[in-house]
Design a protein around this nucleic acid. Structure first.
Lengths: 140, 140
DNA sequence: TAACTTACTTGCATAATGCAAGTGAAAATT
DNA sequence: AATTTTCACTTGCATTATGCAAGTAAGTTA
């Protein structure tokens, strides 16, 4: 019998977190969902990095199982589903912000300098505002 | 010709960060290196999660190429190498701490409650202390 | 009612990971 | 000095994940 992929490798919180989003795509999907307000499959597929459709489908299922997102039919178009972050996903924003800041500082592109400036002068407010916006978009 | 694996998928800082440590193992190695003071190959191999030896070897090379760690011969034993985090790795500590906190809160194990308490009352000091300790261990 | 859209699934090639065994150099033991 | 052990890997191979292109079923639009 193959080992249950849901079984934890250890009790370490970092290890636990990585079992949920320790791959190349999960946090990209959460970024699009939370920071770019994409809520439909097609919108997520069209993200800058070009996620493969099967990978996106698998990640969405997993995020739903892990209760980081919800999936509901679009009342205005029964073909579509609306994916929205949960409060658990919102609680990831501080980590995401730290990751963004590290990426801006380290990636030597001219992207993100205003975000960085804001972070350096008022980190807590920045995070609170981002979280408020996500909650608003997701009706939380 | 296969695409250069070093080429960025986009200019997004999150995407950039994930290209460096967006996998199941890289941050585990950095955790052991920085927060558990493991500096030799064997010590890293013996980590709780059981990383495979070929994977560890590949990650160490990549971390060195990316300048997150250095590799030096142990003057006391010429078989061994000492792996140490660089200042760039130290700058990842805030993100790691946020990840740890999320993992503690989300993972419903009884680990980390004192870390969490400390984080909630004095986040900045906690991070500064952790960074100071890493720098000290690594002679930075 | 025919032609799209949308959200997927499927099949297949390639890449990443896991596992066990092997190698070569240096250190410790006899 | 010879042998054994330790150390830091490498290699080979099976399994799993990812990337890519095409296909499908249900719902919408023309």
């Amino acid at each position: 019998m193959p080992p249950d992929p849901e079984t934890r490798r250890s009790d370490c919180p970092i290890s636990f977190a990585l079992e949920i989003f320790g791959d190349r795509w999960t946090l990209i999907v959460l970024r699009d969902l939370m920071l770019r307000s994409r809520q439909r499959y097609r919108e997520l597929l069209e993200g800058d990095e070009g996620i493969a459709t099967n990978v996106l489908a698998e990640r969405l299922k997993r995020l739903e199982r892990r209760k980081l997102i919800t999936r509901k039919r679009d009342p205005a178009d029964a073909r579509q589903f609306i994916y929205l972050p949960t409060e658990l996903a919102v609680s990831l924003v501080p980590m995401l912000v730290e990751m963004i800041v590290w990426g801006i500082r380290t990636g030597d592109k001219e992207v993100g300098s205003e975000f960085l400036a804001r972070f350096e002068t008022e980190r807590d407010t920045l995070i609170a505002e981002l979280q408020a916006k996500v909650r608003k978009d997701a009706d939380l």
